[in-house]
Design a protein around this nucleic acid. Structure first.
Lengths: 250, 250
DNA sequence: CGTGAAGTTGAGTATGCTCAACGGTGGTGG
DNA sequence: CCACCACCGTTGAGCATACTCAACTTCACG
């Protein structure tokens, strides 16, 4: 409802036109990916009555670390990065998020990370206060939210292994593999991988510097694991080599 | 029921005596901490009918990375570490878990980490297949599970910042602070902190070596941030210094 | 008091960081 | 249309933090 969307800080006027949202939800590109998957049309209408949509340009923030966590978001297109900043400027990207991913549902009253568009993004926003109602009304939604959080935990565990115990080359290899798994829309027809984020974002994600990221890509290229850059896309020449490098369960 | 517990691999016979479990649940020390908090006595009885208990000695595994994830566990006492191993022996501890914490609820059919007791542990085990039923029946349980997972994500994000962007001393400082927050039963009467895990566990958690961990403790001691070891407990002389070191939101 | 495991300290090394220069690319304005 | 400029990515040289290897100390336990 318009009432709910009035609380959404920073929403453009276009995003406040919620009347036709049910149809939007029904035709949503990330419908089968997001937590709303599995709802029937009536349930979807109910959900849609709370939902607003928002477009964000690359480089713009969806929310900032420390902001009141008023809304939960589902990414419907584009790429978002979440990150934490230290006082001296050091940055740690905690994750990249793609169509269907759920962000902005922390344990406390404030967002513990900043969410920023890496490439132009569309999201749908849901007022956080309604989550309890939704979870209680639609158990399948509760399970969907739990599944999303479980995946988030699992990715975080992989990332901890990467940050704590892998060298630069191994981290890059693991990163490329995880992108292939998690971001189907980053894979070209020819199987090459479009890195929609900058080297600096990758560096801040992998706990490295841009220089080290660049050098590691060069090494992988020289080793014949990836191909030469073709229009900004990385060609994966040997998935097996990547997997060997990235380690995985012993 | 005994039927459910029969599926629990490795449960000792004592743990299979489930008849008196409702009372155990009612008097459970971690009752107010765990996901079962907020259930009324009838609901607790229902829950308890599926629950089995288990004791684990220090060094023993509760489950292994790659095992079928048949059961979810709530830690009722002691300390558990979860970790991932690489083929060459490199180890990353993804977290320490204390009374009230929920572990073993991954997104996939297999545990993605190994869970091992750091200090003698008691857990209560719940068959994973019953989770859907529980979530659907008791929305407050669904919310409790969601909250536990949210906390797990939040800790993981903090840990990623630590592993990716903090130096050795800063990581130790952050680790001590997070222990004080998350493990009230690790705090002595005099305010000192009992580190129930070995230096090697701390090293594998912080992505360091034992030597570096040891040196960092020495530095903090020399800087007057922590006191000399007293019976294996760390005296926190200046919480402010620890917080300055650990960084936190800029 | 002896033994083994855990922890600490020291010396040398390596991986990735810092600082710096260079090349490519896309957008802007003369 | 092309020159200019800013931004991004790459490469090089030197350096620092944490690792490796090794010796020694401390502690728990018999």
């Amino acid at each position: 409802m318009a009432q709910a969307s009035a609380n959404v800080i920073g929403l453009c006027d276009a995003a406040r036109q919620t009347d036709h949202l049910p149809q939007e939800c029904a035709s949503c590109v990330s419908r089968h990916l997001a937590v709303c998957a599995g709802l029937n049309p009536d349930q979807l209408n109910h959900l849609a009555s709370y939902v607003t949509r928002r477009r964000i340009d690359a480089g713009q923030a969806l929310f900032q670390e420390g902001d009141g966590a008023d809304h939960v978001f589902t990414v419907t297109s584009g790429v978002i990065k979440q990150y934490k900043l230290l006082a001296d400027g050091r940055c740690q990207v905690t994750g990249f998020y793609f169509a269907g991913d759920l962000i902005g549902l922390p344990d406390g009253p404030e967002y513990p990370v900043t969410a920023e568009a890496v490439a132009p993004v569309t999201v749908c926003a849901f007022p956080r206060g309604r989550i309890s109602e939704l979870v209680a009304t639609y158990p399948q939604m509760a399970e969907a939210v739990i599944l999303k959080l479980q995946r988030e935990v699992s990715s975080a565990q992989d990332q901890m292994l990467s940050l704590g115990r892998l060298n630069a080359e191994e981290r890059i290899a693991g990163f490329l593999l995880s992108l292939m798994e998690k971001a189907p829309d980053c894979i070209n027809d020819d199987g090459s991988l479009i890195l929609r984020m900058r080297r600096a974002d990758i560096a801040d994600y992998l706990g490295l510097t841009v220089e080290t990221v660049s050098r590691s890509f060069t090494k992988l290229r020289n080793a014949g694991v990836i191909g030469a850059d073709k229009a900004g896309a990385v060609e994966i020449l040997s998935r097996d080599d990547l997997e060997d490098l990235a380690g995985g369960p012993g």
